[in-house]
Amino acid sequence: MFLGTHTPRLDDKGRLTLPARFRDALAGGLMITKGQDHCLFVFPRAVFEEMAHKVAQAPFTNESVRAYQRYLFAGTDEQRPDGQGRISITSDLRRYAGLTKDCVVIGAISRLEIWDASAWERYLEDHEDGYAQAREEVLPGVF
């Protein structure tokens, strides 16, 4: 399970050092793809394959399904962390997420998300009030 917030820096070669606590879970390979809200999603390879199988089961005769499949799979890059836990983020993915040197990596249960640090701060500011309201939609009757 991926949890927490980490603040690695992107180096001049477009490499990002993954938080040490996640490296074992990602050592077998990972998939980086465009996420919603202009961040990047990082999935362990097995989790991505399971999700891809489900997406592939959707009827490709549906225009929205085809568009989603194209966007998701065309923008995906397979990586294996190097011995220092670094991954290379392609220029297309860096551009999509607006990544600069300062990044934020957050754990989102089944995946990691990579955000530009400024974009993450804006996201938190814009969505803080909605967090309390969403609780009832996400977990009705739990709290």
Rank of each mutant, 00 (worst) to 15 (best):
V42N: 00
A46P: 04
I89W: 01
S88G: 14
W120M: 06
L18A: 05
Q69R: 11
Q57A: 12
T61E: 08
D102M: 09
F41D: 03
G85C: 11
F2M: 10
G28R: 08
L112F: 08
Y68F: 13
L93N: 13
L18I: 09
Q36E: 07
E78I: 06
R66D: 05
I114H: 04
A25H: 07
E128S: 09
F41T: 00
A25V: 11
I87E: 08
S91G: 09
K34C: 04
N62P: 07
D102F: 07
Y123A: 07
M51Y: 14
E125L: 11
E125F: 03
C39I: 02
G85N: 10
D102T: 12
I89N: 03
L93G: 05
E50T: 15
G85W: 06
G35W: 00
M31I: 14
T61M: 11
Q57R: 13
W120C: 01
G4M: 07
F73D: 01
A25D: 13
L139I: 05
M1P: 15
L26T: 04
G35V: 02
H6M: 07
A25Y: 03
V47M: 09
K54W: 05
G141Q: 11
F2D: 01
I87F: 12
Q57G: 07
G35N: 03
L18Y: 04
K101A: 15
S64K: 09
Y71I: 01
G28N: 10
V65N: 00
A97N: 09
G98D: 13
M1D: 14
Q57K: 09
A119L: 00
E137L: 11
M1G: 15
R70F: 12
L3K: 13
L112Q: 08
R86W: 13
K101D: 15
S88K: 13
V138C: 05
L112K: 03
Y131P: 01
D82Q: 08
R21L: 11
H53E: 15
D116W: 02
R95Y: 13
P140D: 11
T5C: 12
I32A: 02
V138P: 06
A58F: 09
S88P: 07
D11N: 09
A56E: 13
E49D: 15
V104M: 12
Q57S: 14
V138Q: 10
S118N: 08
G35T: 02
G141N: 07
G4D: 09
I87W: 08
L10G: 06
L72E: 01
G35Q: 02
E63C: 00
K54R: 14
D82K: 07
H6L: 06
A74G: 06
D116M: 03
Q133V: 05
T90C: 03
R95C: 10
D129I: 03
A74Y: 12
R135L: 13
A117Y: 02
T76N: 07
K13G: 00
L93Q: 04
I109A: 12
G85R: 07
L18V: 03
S91K: 14
L72D: 01
Q69N: 11
G75Y: 07
P8G: 06
S91P: 12
C39Q: 02
T76E: 06
K13Q: 08
P8S: 04
D82M: 03
W115H: 05
F48W: 15
R94A: 06
N62L: 14
T33D: 01
G130L: 00
A134V: 00
P59Q: 11
T100E: 15
